[in-house]
């Protein structure tokens, strides 16, 4: 029996992946991770913000206004990272039709939009004192605004279609098309001569920043990543309950929860 031997040969990792794809297992596992993720994000976020506001010295050119970097840049990184994550899950959802990937893709859109929104607002607040304007149609700013519209488009399309799984696939398709915008956002400061400055921190090679200014930024980058996964898991859990509302495991949760709520 070839099918049987196939199962036998499955490695523990593959088996675990299959198990993870099952909504009740994912729901329980995510529930166990969530408090820790929130706690880690909160503590490292508080340390990072303290470092940025208090410990880091004022910039010799921009004075204290440069402290906006500690919210602006981590959120800008997350706006791209979350989109890439959403697109990767959309790809898996469209090709292999895995329900959990649909859920993860759709659950990352709102938090991605939140990070993009913060990036645009904090950038605007930084632009006013440094460039003398709240907004300019510069390549970096415009492509980041397009990124926000892409997120909103994905969210909107997902909520516009009645059938949740069909909606997720349509929105996943839109998310995949929008990937074109990611390199444009990233390289906009290189390809065009823009008002927005080039990158200060680089993954490979030397960062153009002193360590006392750099560590709060990296701490914030870590905190926002952890927060993203917390938000993602929390939203996925809520979405899975709604998607599987007819299933036995969800009924059990609803009854015990509401029994507690009613006293």
């Amino acid at each position: 029996m070839p099918a049987c031997t196939g199962t036998m040969k499955m490695s523990p990792l593959v088996l675990w992946f299959h198990k993870l794809g099952s909504p009740p297992y994912f729901y329980r596992l995510a529930g166990r991770f969530l408090p820790w993720l929130y706690a880690i994000a909160l503590v490292t976020g508080a340390v990072g913000l303290y470092g940025g506001l208090v410990v880091a010295p004022a910039d010799y050119q921009q004075g204290d206004s440069f402290r906006m970097i500690y919210v602006h840049v981590p959120c800008a990184w997350m706006s791209l990272f979350v989109y890439a994550f959403m697109a990767a899950n959309s790809f898996v959802a469209l090709v292999w039709r895995i329900k959990l990937s649909e859920t993860l893709a759709m659950a990352s859109a709102p938090v991605g939009a939140a990070f993009t929104f913060i990036t645009l607002v904090s950038g605007s607040l930084w632009g006013k004192p440094m460039w003398g304007t709240w907004w300019t149609w510069d390549a970096r700013l415009t492509s980041e605004l397009v990124l926000l519209f892409l997120y909103l488009g994905v969210i909107g399309l997902y909520h516009a279609i009645e059938d949740a799984r069909q909606a997720a696939r349509a929105a996943a398709f839109l998310a995949l098309i929008g990937v074109v915008n990611l390199p444009i956002v990233h390289y906009s400061v290189v390809w065009w001569n823009t008002l927005h400055q080039g990158q200060t921190v680089s993954l490979m090679g030397q960062s153009k920043m002193s360590s006392s200014m750099l560590w709060p930024l990296l701490t914030m980058a870590f905190a926002t990543h952890v927060y993203f996964f917390a938000s993602l898991l929390a939203r996925s859990r809520a979405a899975l309950l709604a998607l599987e509302s007819g299933k036995e495991w969800v009924r059990g949760i609803a009854q015990t929860q509401e029994a507690h709520a009613h006293g």
């Binding site: 204290d64 919210v71 959120c75 607002v121 607040l125």
Partner: peptide, 15 residues
């Protein structure tokens, strides 16, 4: 914040 208080605090608050 060296005169940038309104901008810096607004950015952190929005975050």
């Amino acid at each position: 914040m060296g005169g940038y208080g309104a901008y810096v605090w607004a950015a952190y608050t929005v975050f």
